[in-house]
Computed example of a mutant assay.
Amino acid sequence: MTEKLLNHLAEGPASAPPLLLGPSLGTSYALWDQVAPELSVGHRVVRWDLPGHGGSPAALISPGASVSDLADQVIALADALGVDRFAYAGVSLGGAVGLDLAVRHPERVSSLAVICSSAHFGGAEPWRERAERVRRDGLEWLLPSANARWFAGDFTVERLIRDHAEADPAAYAACCDALAAFDLRERLGEIGAPTLLIAGRQDPATPPAHLREIADAVPGAALVEIPGASHLAPAQCPEAVLTALRAHFGQGARRGMAVRREVLGDAHVDRAQARQTPFTARFQDFISRYAWGEIWTDPTLSRRERSMITLTALVAHGHYDELAMHVRAARRNGLTPEEIGAVLLQAAVYCGVPAANSAFATAQRVLAEEEDGAREG
């Protein structure tokens, strides 16, 4: 790992949709210990440390830093990992980073969850004062109040308290500078990514009103309030946070299933679902979420164009059962029999005559069945 990157931990299948998780000031990626492993079942989860926190170098941040500077570090991390578009969830300062990413890099953020955070953090002066004292006296004076600031009741997480104590004071103070300067209220309406706000009802730092303010300004945003949760909700109420995030980030699978039905038809999808077993369930979810929820919904290519590409690929690999299914799909996507024939003829040149011969036979059978069905109808 290069020193120029934020320290991070990646979990989950490399082929799964990426999900980046951002921490709160004073914590490390251990904040997500009770949530990230479960999310990694269906996502490639990458959780990262703030500069000077956990394993991230303090040199990555300087006095007078902004939230945008931190967001740029996240983009650099995503680029280094080969991640172009990602879902994002962040707590407090990590949530502010998510808002900044969604405003300045909308093409990178597929969906967003902002947890116990704000579009502004109560004015600049208290954060400037904290930064000044941390630079002068270190972090020791903040430690006795950490539990009251972070958790409700007698709850605590020793690992997070230790992270707070071990953070680099200069980097912590620079993060305070970023919070002091942060105010994104005027730009919240620009956020187009599906957005979920999660508030802890007992959070004194960013009470539910702060999350409600974001929810009211971001088009289509949803708000969940968690009883019994204070500022570090993923640590204190992990099941509630996990349930909300699963429902929000699972939209790809639901969207994918809708597209799958539009392209392949209800009858085919119903048969596939009826044949599903516990052994094949994750594969079926993978198809709906990735192939149909990510690839087929990408607006770069039309469905007609995707059908032509798919037909060619299936001919090239000799997948004639799948080819029959996608000839029907091509008709639903607007291709005429003549256009399907032209695609198969093109495939004959580049994939070979024997492959195209079998493909023409398959397509002719499907088109004849379609014609017979139309006459009977």
Results as ranks from 00 to 15, higher is better:
Gly52Leu: 00
Gly52Cys: 06
His53Ala: 07
Gly55Leu: 13
Gly55Phe: 09
Gly55Lys: 14
Gly55Gln: 15
Ser56Glu: 05
Ser56Met: 05
Ser56Thr: 03
Pro57Glu: 09
Ala58Trp: 02
Ala58Met: 11
Ala58Val: 05
Ala59Asn: 12
Leu60His: 08
Leu60Ala: 02
Ser62Tyr: 07
Pro63Cys: 01
Pro63Trp: 01
Gly64Lys: 04
Gly64Met: 05
Ala65Glu: 08
Ala65Ser: 13
Val67Pro: 12
Ser68Lys: 13
Ser68Phe: 11
Ser68Ala: 11
Ser68Ile: 08
Asp69Met: 04
Leu70Gly: 11
Leu70Met: 10
Asp72Ile: 06
Asp72Asn: 15
Val74Glu: 00
Val74Lys: 00
Val74Pro: 04
Val74Leu: 12
Ile75Phe: 10
Leu77Met: 07
Leu77Glu: 09
Leu77Phe: 05
Leu77Asp: 02
Ala78Gly: 05
Ala78Glu: 03
Asp79Leu: 09
Ala80Tyr: 11
Ala80Trp: 04
Ala80Gln: 02
Leu81Trp: 04
Gly82Ser: 11
Val83Met: 13
Val83Gly: 10
Val83Leu: 07
Val83Thr: 00
Val83Ala: 02
Asp84Val: 15
Asp84Arg: 15
Ala87Asn: 09
Ala87Trp: 07
Tyr88Leu: 06
Tyr88Glu: 09
Ala89Cys: 02
Gly90Tyr: 01
Gly90Phe: 04
Gly90Arg: 03
Gly90Thr: 06
Gly90Asp: 04
Gly90Lys: 03
Val91Trp: 08
Val91Pro: 00
Ser92Trp: 00
Ser92His: 08
Leu93Gly: 06
Leu93Met: 13
Gly94Arg: 07
Gly95Pro: 09
Val97Gln: 05
Val97Asn: 03
Val97Gly: 02
Val97Glu: 00
Ala102Met: 04
Ala102Glu: 10
Val103Leu: 15
Val103Thr: 15
Val103Cys: 15
Arg104His: 14
Arg104Tyr: 10
Arg104Trp: 01
His105Tyr: 13
Pro106Glu: 01
Glu107Val: 01
Glu107Gln: 11
Arg108Asp: 09
Arg108Phe: 02
Val109Pro: 06
Val109Glu: 02
Ser110Gly: 05
Ser110His: 04
Ser110Lys: 04
Ser110Gln: 05
Ser111Tyr: 07
Leu112Val: 07
Leu112Thr: 13
Ala113Gly: 10
Ile115Val: 14
Cys116Ile: 06
Cys116Val: 10
Ser117Cys: 04
Ser117Asp: 05
Ser118Phe: 07
Ser118His: 04
Ser118Tyr: 05
Ala119Val: 09
Ala119Asp: 15
His120Thr: 15
His120Gly: 12
His120Asp: 15
His120Asn: 03
Phe121Ala: 10
Phe121Ile: 09
Phe121Gly: 05
Phe121Gln: 01
Phe121Thr: 10
Gly122Ile: 12
Gly123Trp: 08
Gly123Ser: 14
Gly123Val: 11
Glu125Ala: 12
Pro126Cys: 07
Pro126Lys: 02
Trp127Gly: 01
Arg128Met: 10
Arg128Leu: 13
Glu129Thr: 12
Glu129Lys: 11
Ala131Asn: 13
Glu132Thr: 14
Arg133Ala: 00
Val134Phe: 02
Val134Cys: 07
Arg135Pro: 07
Arg136Glu: 08
